[in-house]
Amino acid sequence: MQVITDLLPVILFFIAYKKAGIFVATAVAMISTLVLMLFIWLKRGKIDKMLAINGAVITVLGGITLLLHDKTYIMWKPTAIYWIGALVLLFSRYAFKRNLIENMLGKMMAPPVAVWDKLNFCWVGFLVGMGILNLYVAFHFTEDDWVNFKLFGATSLMFVFIIAQVFALRAYWIEQNTPSA
């Protein structure tokens, strides 16, 4: 369910782009993200931090895009999200001595602290690299290529990165004992 809600504004952006162009797509992404945030808040009583950050970034950069009628700002949005994520992982680990990757996955796997730190650093590197790749595609390829990359390329790279981690860390997965019927 989380994957669908994360991808919904991107999918709607893609559809709107194909039908009406970058500026309508930007407005659709802004509205769909804010509606999604409202829906989740009404359902759960709170909004996930990353969704709130995404909502703020899309509102600011999308708003500037529409106000100035300049697509550059919306093209920076994925990079901003990736780099904010990388900074949060680094800052949390070294300022607060909390590994957010361990907090998220600690009930599913039990590697040594050094492995958690490597995993955290791998995510930081991946997110920084994704931000750079987004900018490269945005400013060295066509707008249409960037939109396609945003949905298909970035999503595929994220999926491959996660699958690679599953295989690399399979020795540390904790068996979930469920009662049999």
Rank of each mutant, 00 (worst) to 15 (best):
V24K: 05
I174T: 12
S156M: 14
G153Q: 03
L90H: 04
I22R: 09
T33D: 00
M50W: 07
N103T: 14
A86E: 04
V147L: 07
I64W: 07
A20T: 02
A181T: 09
L87T: 08
V147Q: 01
V24G: 04
I11A: 14
T33I: 08
I64E: 02
V124P: 03
A181E: 10
A164Q: 06
K19N: 14
K77F: 08
A80H: 09
V147H: 10
A171H: 14
P112E: 14
M109S: 13
L119E: 07
S156E: 03
I132P: 03
F96R: 14
M130S: 02
M1V: 09
A20N: 09
W83L: 08
P78K: 04
A154R: 09
F13D: 05
Y82H: 09
I101P: 03
W76I: 05
I53T: 09
F96G: 00
A80S: 12
I47R: 14
F149D: 02
G21I: 07
Y73V: 08
F161Q: 01
L66A: 02
G131S: 03
D6W: 09
A20V: 00
T33R: 04
N99H: 04
A86R: 01
P112W: 10
M104P: 00
G125W: 07
G85P: 00
V137Y: 08
E143D: 03
R93E: 15
K77R: 11
F126A: 12
Q176R: 14
L105V: 11
F167S: 02
L66K: 04
D117C: 01
L38S: 15
G106Q: 12
V88D: 10
T155R: 04
A164R: 01
A95R: 04
T79E: 05
E175L: 11
T59F: 15
L68W: 01
T59N: 06
D6T: 13
P179T: 13
Y17T: 06
F139L: 12
V24M: 09
A20P: 00
K150F: 12
F96L: 15
K46I: 03
G63R: 08
W116P: 02
V166H: 15
A86C: 00
A80G: 06
L8V: 11
I84R: 08
K150Y: 11
Q176S: 13
G21P: 12
F14N: 04
I11S: 07
L8G: 02
A181Y: 05
M75P: 01
P9Y: 08
E143I: 00
H69G: 00
A164I: 06
S156T: 15
A168V: 03
T59E: 06
K43F: 11
A25T: 02
N54T: 10
V115R: 14
L135C: 10
Y136L: 13
T26D: 06
L67H: 09
A52F: 11
K107R: 15
K43M: 13
F139Y: 15
A164M: 11
W123K: 08
I11C: 07
K97M: 11
F96K: 11
N120M: 00
I101C: 05
T26Y: 07
L135S: 10
Y73L: 08
A16H: 08
I31G: 03
V137F: 10
T5A: 07
M130G: 05
